[in-house]
């Protein structure tokens, strides 16, 4: 037999569990269902799968929370969570890297080459294929449009999202979005400091503010999208500009939403269940790292999609 102290030193290896395979099955439904939905074969499977995914995830996390409340997580296990979260964020960085890479390639290589520059047979693409295409960024007239005019399938946007005159600065949504998101990074930090001082009230307050800012951001983003579709003639189909604009900001927005929900969960844990101590609050820390990551992505977006 072993001594009590040894049990606590031992790394916690959970007993067998039915959650992972249920989750895998839910993922199967989501994947298959999403493909069904996209190809016009009905959306039921997708919805069932989504509900199953959210349900199993919530259940899974509640178990982890219970285990940590029961003191099963040694410092070493906590360390595993820390490393795990850090590498997960790295994978997210690489996902955005692909889309930023696409943006840079299109802006610096694809568009100029379509306009007649390029390494092989100088001007070939420009002269033979798209003689009238103007290689500017953002391309308000797509190559196809430069050839076919109104008959083109892929037409450029009527307006773009750049700031056109300094006088519009006050009503320029991206700026407000930047302010909102940057301050939320600050408030989440203040909340963290408060938690380290064990000041629960202040922690809940500042975390609450952060969550509110997160959702304000999402709403502003929705307004921006509405404006784009309703008034600016800028859609997902407006050539590469619309493509890169909506894909980059869209994936970022999705991450804001996820991060916001992540933070909200931590707020509820703290406010309703009094989880976390000044030393142990990994759930919150993970959420705040994720939040800072989302913030950094936005700063890149702000520069490369809205300003430069």
């Amino acid at each position: 037999m072993e001594s009590k102290s040894n049990i606590h030193q031992k790394y916690y290896v959970p007993e067998q569990s039915s959650i992972p395979i249920i989750f895998a099955f839910a993922a199967l439904l989501v994947g298959f269902g999403a493909a069904n939905a996209i190809t016009g074969n009905g959306t039921i499977m997708l919805w069932v799968g989504m509900i199953a995914v959210v349900g199993t995830l919530a259940f899974w996390w509640s178990i982890i929370t219970k285990e940590s409340q029961a003191g099963l997580d040694t410092p070493q296990l906590n360390n595993s969570y820390v490393y795990g979260m850090a590498w997960f964020i790295f994978s997210e960085v690489m996902f955005f890297f692909a889309f930023f890479g696409a943006l840079f390639y299109i802006r610096n290589i694809a568009i100029p080459w379509l306009g007649g520059e390029g390494p092989t047979a100088k001007g070939l693409a420009g002269e033979l294929l798209w003689p009238d295409f103007e290689p500017t960024w953002p391309p308000m007239i797509t190559p196809e449009q430069s050839l076919l005019g109104e008959n083109a399938v892929t037409k450029g946007p009527a307006e773009n999202m750049y700031l056109h005159s300094i006088r519009d600065l006050g009503t320029w949504l991206p700026l407000w979005n930047t302010i909102v998101l940057l301050s939320s990074s600050a408030t989440v930090h203040v909340a963290h400091l408060a938690l380290k001082e064990n000041n629960r009230k202040r922690f809940n307050f500042w975390l609450g503010i952060t969550v509110a800012l997160a959702f304000i951001f999402v709403i502003l983003q929705a307004v921006e999208y509405y404006e784009a579709y309703a008034h600016l003639g800028l859609t997902l189909n407006s050539g590469v500009y619309g493509t890169t604009f909506f894909m980059l900001t869209g994936f970022h927005g999705m991450h804001v939403l996820i991060g916001g929900i992540f933070l909200l969960t931590q707020l509820m844990r703290s406010a309703n269940y009094n989880h976390f101590t000044d030393k142990e609050h990994f759930g919150f820390e993970a959420a705040s790292w994720y939040w800072h990551f989302v913030d950094v992505v936005w700063v890149c977006l702000f520069f490369f999609v809205y300003i430069l």
Binding site: I111, L114, W130, P143, L236, N237, G239, V240, T243
Partner: peptide, 9 residues
């Protein structure tokens, strides 16, 4: 979208 479609840039 037009990531890989020259017609859209």
């Amino acid at each position: 979208t037009s990531f890989f479609d020259a017609a859209g840039g």
